[in-house]
């Protein structure tokens, strides 16, 4: 879809950036894959889960976070679709995407407060360690994602969409973070 939109002069540069972005995403995937590996190691060698007779964590905030991050990703796609069709709509959906991303980070902070009230801390055993560390690392990457969106913000406000490659690649990173969150949600809170 994007290849049709991008003019021929740019396409060479687009290939270069796509390759670099692919390698970057593979690197980030390996980081999170290692975290998931550690999760499985603890999960499969435990006789009981959650360990230490802990109760399962309340789903409320993680579920809200999931909805927020999915809709943020969706609005990024809307933003990309509207680049040529209606720049005004594109701008609004970009702002929505950014806002929802920030809301996701806030929801994570609320989630940590919630955990602390129940009495689960990072230092209280492997279950707390896993939940906190994974969400910390993910939020760290979300912050990086927000920075990349803010980097895009000035040109979006000017409705100047000439840097298509940049928009596509930042989108890839943003979607990647959403996918990672969904996997974390499944592993840590659902199964």
């Amino acid at each position: 879809m994007m290849t049709q939109k991008v003019g021929k002069i740019e396409s060479g540069e687009q290939v270069v950036n796509s390759i670099a972005m692919l390698v970057t995403i593979i690197s980030f995937s390996m980081l999170f894959a290692t975290l998931f590996l550690s999760f499985f190691l603890y999960r499969l060698s435990a006789t009981q889960w959650p360990p230490m007779n802990l109760d399962r964590i309340d789903h409320l905030f993680p579920a809200i976070s999931s909805i927020l991050i999915i809709s943020s990703s969706w609005f990024y796609e809307v933003f990309k679709k509207n680049l040529d069709r209606s720049p005004n709509n594109a701008r609004y959906s970009f702002l929505l995407c950014l806002g929802l991303g920030l809301a996701f980070i806030i929801s994570q902070f609320l989630f940590w407060n919630d955990l602390k009230e129940v009495g689960i801390f990072a230092s209280s055993g492997i279950y707390g360690s896993l939940v906190y560390s994974f969400t910390w690392i993910h939020v760290g990457h979300m912050a990086m994602g927000i920075f990349t969106l803010l980097y895009l913000l000035p040109s979006v406000m000017r409705e100047d969409f000439k840097k298509r490659i940049r928009i596509v690649n930042i989108g890839k990173f943003w979607h990647f973070l959403a996918v990672v969150w969904l996997m974390m949600y499944l592993l840590l809170f659902v199964i």
Binding site: S38, Y42, S45, A46, T47, Q48, P51, M52, F121, A122, S123, S124, G125, I126, Y127, G128, S129, Y132, S133
Partner: peptide, 14 residues
């Protein structure tokens, strides 16, 4: 203070 690499039985003392 997370406990990823502390030795111990996972299920009993976490």
């Amino acid at each position: 203070g997370t406990t990823f690499f502390l030795a111990g039985a996972i299920a009993t003392n976490g």
